[in-house]
């Protein structure tokens, strides 16, 4: 229900920008918005689990950066000549392992030692940040592996008015002028985002894990009395959040071909905002990843549309801030309705 107004708002934004914004209404631009929002959305998917469980994870942005650095180090230190898939897989596996460790620490602190989520994850915020910078010596790590950037920036299909359609690869031997006419269709990262969206959605809506996540967030005491292992459930929720942050870090590496400790710094608050705008309740027990996706879309469409309309960029902060406040007001109104 909470996401209903978000859908309407998104629709209104798109209509307004399409009418006023020059170049907004086009396949290329919509695909740009979707590809560019992928990292933010993946962070938000993980955050959704935590917020449904009545917690908050402030460390995801820096865990994302730490994983970005770790997987960049793994990818660049492997011997040359290995197939690309093996390089990406190894980098990702080690990166996700590191994310799991960070999530475990968060989860154990919060679930077992009763540290408030705000404090525990703020601690991890600092630790992941420090580890990321230490490992990378404070500099982004360039990953010069041929084909890697294509994974992050390529499209499933390409269409060119002269050469027609091609699958996976751009038509060979294009001149610069012809490059401009080339249209990519369905960015790879969009597929990654949708797969992760589906996984998160199924986990939440179709599994015992999801059911328990809502239960823990809805009423911890009752869940405990019902015999659900709250401690291990909560721990796992934070691991899930960290793993999604890890995926975000890996997608960042593919997209920008470098590993950076501060890759997620600017996205942290936006990702929490996306979840809230998408109708998740900060009181716990309510929310969906689909909602988080809409929230991320609203933020990205605002960003894109305001730039396209050449509006003073400071208005963007005001716009996003206002949307967050409206979302929370709606959330609270709903809460009162439920109680009343």
């Amino acid at each position: 229900m909470g996401a209903m107004w978000a859908w309407l708002f998104l629709f209104a934004l798109i209509v307004v920008f399409s009418i006023i914004g020059k170049g907004f209404l086009s396949l290329t631009n919509f695909q740009n918005i979707l590809a560019n929002m992928s990292i933010l959305a993946i962070l938000a998917f993980g955050q959704t689990f935590v917020i449904i469980a009545a917690g908050i994870d402030l460390s995801t942005g820096w865990v994302m950066g730490m994983v970005s650095v770790v997987s960049a180090i793994v990818m660049t230190s492997l011997p040359e000549g290995l197939p690309l898939w093996l390089v990406v897989l190894s980098g990702s596996l080690v990166g996700i392992l590191v994310a799991i460790m960070a999530g475990m620490v968060n989860g154990l602190l919060i679930a077992r030692l009763n540290v408030p989520p705000f404090i525990a994850t703020m601690g991890m915020f600092g630790i992941a940040r420090g580890v990321g910078f230490l490992l990378s010596n404070g500099m982004p790590i360039p990953i010069s592996i041929s084909g890697l950037g294509r994974l992050g920036n390529g499209y499933l299909f390409y269409h060119h008015p002269e050469f027609g359609w091609s699958f996976l690869n751009q038509p060979a031997g294009l001149e610069r002028a012809q490059m401009r006419q080339l249209l990519g269709v369905i960015p790879f990262v969009l597929i990654v985002m949708i797969v992760l969206l589906l996984i998160a959605h199924i986990m939440l809506s179709r599994t015992k894990f999801g059911l328990r996540t809502y239960a823990v967030g809805g009423n911890k005491e009752a869940t405990l009395r019902a015999g659900i292992p709250v401690v291990s459930q909560l721990t796992r929720v934070y691991v899930v959040s960290a793993v999604f942050a890890g995926f975000a870090g890996i997608v960042y590496n593919l997209r920008f071909t470098n590993g950076a400790a501060n890759a997620g710094e600017a996205l942290q608050l936006d990702s929490i905002a996306a979840v809230v705008i998408g109708g998740a309740s900060l009181f716990g027990g309510a929310g969906t990843v689909g909602g988080a996706m809409i929230g991320a879309l609203i933020i990205s469409v605002l960003e894109n549309g305001l730039v396209i309309m050449a509006i003073n960029p400071f208005w963007k902060y005001i716009a996003v801030g206002t949307v967050i406040i409206i979302a929370v007001l709606i959330d609270q109104a709903r809460e009162r309705m439920v109680i009343g």
Binding site: G21, K22, G23, F24, S26, T28, N29, N32, I33, N36, M37, I39, L40, Y252, R255, F256, A260, A263, A266, L267, S300, E303, N304, G305, V307, I308, A310
Partner: peptide, 14 residues
């Protein structure tokens, strides 16, 4: 970098 890419692709549209 992610935000810079987002904003720049919008400017390239405009």
């Amino acid at each position: 970098a992610a935000k810079a890419a987002e904003q720049t692709s919008a400017v390239l549209q405009r």
